[in-house]
């Protein structure tokens, strides 16, 4: 059974339809990416899945519908979101940000362990743990946003454009981390503009265009697909 199943998802902003009846599914343990050009509806899809936007259609998580579920309950169900533009709490310290990620949990020892794990995963955050999160560099903020999402011990991690506004070196680092998180057994849905990198790390991919899914398949197959190479990899 799939961890996440989406059937006929529609999202509109006022009268404009941004997502037109798409369907997708993600099996447990998979790393799936959603790629496409600007305005294709990738982020909108992700936001709808995270219940940040009203949507119609079916969204089944572990076989149960989450369309009516409030956003704050998703975390307790095991869905964590790394929002677009990171959404870190700039005025809180790095460590406080991480603890906010564990807001839905109450097992102090487990939280402590996961905190250490985050610092292990991102030594840079350990160095800066008492610093205001707003004073971190863009890349460090992205690391923090990902580490914070992991603090809720998610089964499904939704990543919205993790490479946005980052230096190439930093982007590579972030993607290495995404791969590592996936190897740890966390299911990931990645929305990304940088198609090559996204296809490189993913198992499967969906390609969006004009609010619909135009292509899907194994990431490695899509990497070799002439149409994808032409449209998204600039070849």
């Amino acid at each position: 059974m799939s961890l996440l199943e989406v059937h006929d998802l529609n999202v509109s902003y006022g009268g404009i339809k941004a997502v037109r009846g798409i369907s997708l599914e993600i099996a447990a343990g998979e790393l799936v990416c959603l790629i496409g050009a600007n305005g294709a509806g990738k982020s909108t899809t992700l936001k709808a899945l995270a219940r940040l936007l009203p949507a119609s259609g079916k969204i089944l998580y572990q076989g149960r519908s989450i369309v009516q579920m409030p956003v704050y309950d998703l975390v307790r169900q095991g869905i964590a979101l790394v929002p677009e533009g990171r959404g870190i709490f700039g005025r809180l310290k790095v460590e406080e940000n991480l603890l906010m990620g564990a807001y839905s949990r109450s097992d102090i020892h487990g939280i402590r362990r996961d905190l250490d794990h985050s610092y292990h995963l991102f030594p840079r955050l350990f160095e800066r743990k008492t610093q205001q999160a707003g004073t971190l560099s863009g890349g460090e903020q992205q690391m923090l946003a990902i580490a914070r999402a992991l603090m809720s011990r998610p089964r499904l991690l939704l990543l919205d454009e993790p490479s946005m506004g980052l230096a190439p070196l930093m982007v590579n680092k972030i993607f290495d981390t995404i791969r590592a998180i996936s190897a740890d057994g966390v299911t990931i849905l990645l929305v990304e503009q940088n198609a090559r990198l996204a296809l490189d790390v993913s198992h499967r991919a969906y390609v969006m265009e004009g609010g619909t899914i135009c292509l899907s398949g194994e990431a490695s197959t899509l990497l070799d697909d002439p149409q994808v190479r032409h449209a998204y990899l600039g070849e």
Partner: peptide
């Protein structure tokens, strides 16, 4: 600081 992120944290 960020209402959307706060809600995503489970608040």
């Amino acid at each position: 600081e960020d209402e959307v992120a706060a809600e995503a944290m489970g608040i």
